[in-house]
Design a protein around this nucleic acid. Structure first.
Length: 270
DNA sequence: CTACGAACCTGCCTGC
DNA sequence: TGCAGGCAGGTTCGTA
């Protein structure tokens, strides 16, 4: 489900309901996520004040004076604001209950998500090696051209590599490459500086637009209020195999790249 | 170091 | 109708 726009939509949605509040208690119904949820998490969090929620790539960082909870939504995770008396659903794995009764509920059907604890987020193994934020000034031509240099992997795999740039998942990688007019199968190292510039522009505008539209809902993404996103209406190639390219009407092609579904226009993307 | 496949888990859709 | 197989928005890990 969630790529950067969905994670950011979630962050912005829950932020006003929980920051500056105090964790009262934490109910863990399912410890078995991507990694086991630390058994001591309730003790660590209870009575701590949630100062802010930040984001690094697709990780949400819940910062308290006691330490930081790292939360990843995986493929199917979502966070919702609810009330203590609200019916618990099948995959509602964790409730974070605040002192005023507000409940932040983590639901994750496939359990690829993660909830971890750290007192040193900057050096945490999951975060330390991450590439720059795609919407930051650090993601620029000089950087990208250098990082792609000599790489033989398909361009699409490269932009989905979190060590190169964070937050670009399968949907937006397909969309960004289409808007950049670049073939997803091209060896990453063959891009010119000019093409890197166009690619950066495309990635940024696709992500910005998706955030603005509340993310993409294909089957199950819901924001903190339980509402879907609308960016799926703006998808040019993703999931549109055989349908006309919005620019030249050539049928959109569907191939596998690095085991991931990939879509592109054979005429527009070279 | 790079590249690739498998693994984690559930549910839905397709085709036999 | 039933069931096996494939597929899904992510990421780490092991192996060549």
């Amino acid at each position: 489900m969630p790529e950067l726009p969905e994670v950011e939509t979630t962050r912005l949605g829950i932020l006003p309901h929980v920051t500056t509040k105090r964790f009262k208690h934490i109910e863990i119904r399912q410890h078995q996520l991507r990694w086991p949820v630390p058994a001591e998490l309730p003790d660590l969090l209870s009575n701590a004040t949630l100062h802010e929620i930040t984001r690094r790539g697709k990780y949400l960082l819940f910062n308290t004076e006691a330490g930081t909870m790292l939360l990843h939504l995986g493929m199917s995770g979502n966070l919702r604001i609810t009330q203590a008396d609200c019916t618990v659903g099948k995959h509602d794995h964790i409730d974070f209950v605040f002192d005023d009764g507000t409940v932040l509920r983590f639901n994750d059907q496939r359990r690829f998500g993660a909830v971890l604890w750290t007192t040193a987020p900057d050096t945490h193994p999951l975060l330390a090696e991450l590439g720059p934020e795609p919407l930051s000034a650090d993601f620029n031509v000089t950087y990208l051209y250098k990082r792609l240099n000599n790489r033989q992997v398909p361009l699409k795999s490269a932009i989905m590599d979190a060590k190169i740039v964070v937050g670009v998942g399968n949907i937006y990688a397909n969309e960004a490459l289409f808007h950049a007019g670049l073939n997803p199968n091209r060896a990453a190292g063959t891009l010119s500086e000019q093409e890197c510039l166009v690619l950066i522009d495309s990635i940024q505008s696709v992500l910005r637009q998706a955030i603005q539209q509340g993310g993409t809902t294909l089957r199950d993404f819901l924001n903190a209020q339980g509402k879907p996103g609308y960016f799926q209406q703006s998808l040019s190639v993703y999931g549109r195999q055989g349908l006309a390219c919005p620019v030249c009407s050539e049928p959109v092609r569907h191939v596998k790249i690095g085991q991931r579904a990939s879509y592109y226009c054979p005429r527009c993307q070279s």
